[in-house]
Nucleic acid binder design. Structure first.
Lengths: 128, 128, 128, 128
DNA sequence: GTGGTCTAGACCACC
DNA sequence: GTGGTCTAGACCACA
């Protein structure tokens, strides 16, 4: 599901773009599948259809979607593009995390140790 | 600035609590300073004043704020409390990051390496 | 000057994009110069400001313009981009010309000879 | 379909004359066929009926149309006239193309080579 | 129905 | 002033 933070400084279309791109890269939206129609999604999220259209059009420029006039938008990307974007998004996530952690006053060592600890715990949970 | 995500599953009061607590711990809201009045903040964020009151009261229970009748809420915490909360928030941040990274298909090693790399780069930038 | 053909099948924003791009590539709009403001150009051409904004934004994506918030759009491109686009536009012109000529019933030989003849005449005029 | 560029320096009646003449020469309007009535075409293109009348009358003088009182205008031309006009239009197309290409900074050799290349490609496609 | 284009406005942040 | 975002509609072509 997609969510919108109206009060945020980051524009609605940008929020949706990120979420949908993440959904595509993580496999929730699968290759070849049809996206919700502009009007439907706009009604569901209670935003203007133009805003959704902007999101879809930008994702088309970025080569994640293709539009078929009179039919809809479809997930369409090359495997390389997908792999590359995965790497970029991971870097973005890491950067956001580190920025917030630094703002909290954490040193690089503390950050590294915390990540290490959480990774070990989640690995433990996976094995359990 | 505080922002609200109406579509989110996490309640508005919880969203605000987290943001304000983060603001206190990171030093944006300083010890002894007066918080915005309940009705002002409610008007600004366009939420019910009761929601803000709930946030402030819970932060008071958690020992981040104190209320002075007829005067308002003030930032008030012990240094130990602050240090402890910093650690907790850092863990939360790490967990969010790792969860998203795993959803992206990253292995623990890839995650660790990415964090390491970003840390080195930011250290480098700081020195520069 | 920019002109618009409202009755044409090609969208207004596309017509303007082509004309401005041609103007940049041919040197009529020079590197670093400020473009007319969105509102001014919209008023002059009697189209909606959003249409002009769309043109400018697409030319920014295509790396012919850069926007400086609160200041305006400026011509900004790399020399390589300019040279490459010159070649592409020349090919487009040639294709349009040939398509029309073929529709008129001209054979490849006739087309080639006509071009040759006009080129000689214009060369002659240049020398004169 | 006929289109009008209101912003252009070339008069509306001249624009229409060229398009219709091109339509006749290229075979889209066939010998003996009735043209749209003056008032119908004027209504469709949202121009003054006098403008259409002027176009038709000039095309009559140029021997592309004949008017039959109370019946309308009809395509009527001699094969020689048609052949001659084809040649003239081809020259005009070539001149327009060359003028634009020169404005783009292309040398006569580059222009010739580009035309040659596009001709070979289209010939290849025709054979395929 | 679908997307594609366009209009006529609004409010915001930045300068 | 500037551009940036967003809304609330319109009409069109395509399928």
């Amino acid at each position: 599901m997609l969510s919108i933070n109206s009060g945020s400084a980051v524009p609605v279309y940008e929020q949706l773009k990120r979420q949908i791109r993440l959904g595509i890269v993580s496999g929730r939206y699968r290759q070849g599948c049809r996206m919700p129609s502009i009007r439907d999604l706009a009604a569901k999220l209670k935003v203007n259809p133009n805003t959704i259209a902007k999101v879809y059009r930008q994702l088309e420029v970025d080569e994640f979607l293709v539009s078929k006039a009179g039919s809809g938008f479809f997930v369409e990307h090359s495997p390389e593009k997908l792999e590359q974007t995965r790497g970029e998004l991971l870097c973005d996530l890491a950067e956001e995390f580190i920025t917030s952690a630094v703002e909290l006053g954490a040193s690089p060592e503390v950050i590294k140790n915390t990540v290490q600890k959480r990774l070990e715990e989640s690995t433990y949970h996976d094995k359990a």
